[in-house]
Amino acid sequence: MTNVYLAEQQITQSPDSIVSDMNGEKVMFSIASGKYYNLGLIGGRIWELIATPTTARELVEKLLQEYNVSRTACEEQVDAFLRRLHQESLIEVRNLEAHR
């Protein structure tokens, strides 16, 4: 998982968002950007898992326990998902390397 985005960085939800659960899908409003997003079912689960700071590595391990998906596919798709969340400023990232 060395090439996965944010693999060794701590990720958590940005506090500047209002989230609603709609039939299992997470729909959210970003106060900062004024935009609305739908994270869907899996995205919603990932959102729940980053309610407390976690690394992408830990996140993938939890998802592999819950879902029927290969490690490679999970890593690649979670990687792309986290990139998008970061682009939209929906997550906060802390570099663990700076604290070692």
Partner: peptide, 18 residues
């Protein structure tokens, strides 16, 4: 077995006017 079905996680931006 007993694992949930996986779907590609996406970030869909909603057009609120629609």
């Amino acid at each position: 077995t007993n694992k949930k079905e996986w779907q590609v996680p996406t970030v869909e931006m909603l057009d609120v006017s629609e």
